[in-house]
Amino acid sequence: MKRTLSRRQFTLLAAATVAAPALRAQGKPEKSKVAIAVGGKAAFYYLPLTISEQLGYFKAEGLDVEISDFAGGSRALQAVVGGSADVVSGAYEHTINLQSKNQVFQSFVLQGRAPQIALGVSPKAMPNYRSVADLRGKKIGVSAPGSSTNMVANLVLSRAGLKASDVSFIGVGTSAGALAALRSGQIDAMSNTDPVMTMLEQKGEVRIISDTRTLKGTQEVFGGPMPAACLYAPLEFVQKNPNTCQALANAIVHGLKWLQTAGPSDIIKTVPESYLLGDRALYLASFNKVREAIALDGLLPDEGAKTALKALASFEPTVKPDRIDLGKTYTNDFARRAKEKFKA
Rank of each mutant, 00 (worst) to 15 (best):
Lys341Phe: 04
Arg280Pro: 08
Thr214Asp: 09
Lys341Ser: 03
Val290Leu: 07
Ala233Arg: 00
Met199Trp: 04
Ala76Lys: 06
Gly141Cys: 01
Tyr232Arg: 08
Ser286Asn: 00
Gly171His: 01
Gln99His: 10
Lys343Met: 11
Ala91Val: 09
Ser158Val: 07
Thr50Phe: 05
Gln239Tyr: 10
Gly171Arg: 01
Leu215Pro: 02
Ile268Met: 09
Gln246Lys: 08
Asp86Arg: 07
Phe315Lys: 01
Arg130Gln: 15
Val38Lys: 05
Gly120Tyr: 03
Arg213Cys: 10
Asp211Ile: 06
Met1Lys: 14
Ser84Pro: 05
Ile268Arg: 06
Ile96Ala: 08
Gly185Asn: 12
Leu282Gln: 10
Thr318Phe: 13
Thr318His: 14
Asp325Gln: 15
Leu55Thr: 10
Gly40Ala: 02
Phe108His: 04
Thr11Tyr: 13
Gly56Leu: 11
Arg337Lys: 15
Thr218Asn: 00
Ser32Glu: 14
Ser168Pro: 05
Asp86Pro: 06
Val172Ser: 04
Ser147His: 01
Ala335Asp: 07
Gly39His: 05
Leu248Cys: 02
Ser210Asp: 05
Leu155Trp: 03
Ser84Lys: 12
Ile294Ala: 00
Lys339Ser: 05
Glu61Thr: 08
Gly185Glu: 09
Gly27Trp: 14
Val18Thr: 13
Tyr57Met: 11
His254Phe: 04
Thr218Trp: 02
Val196Ser: 04
Asp297Tyr: 01
Lys2Tyr: 13
Ile252Gln: 02
Leu98His: 11
Arg159Met: 11
Glu292Ile: 08
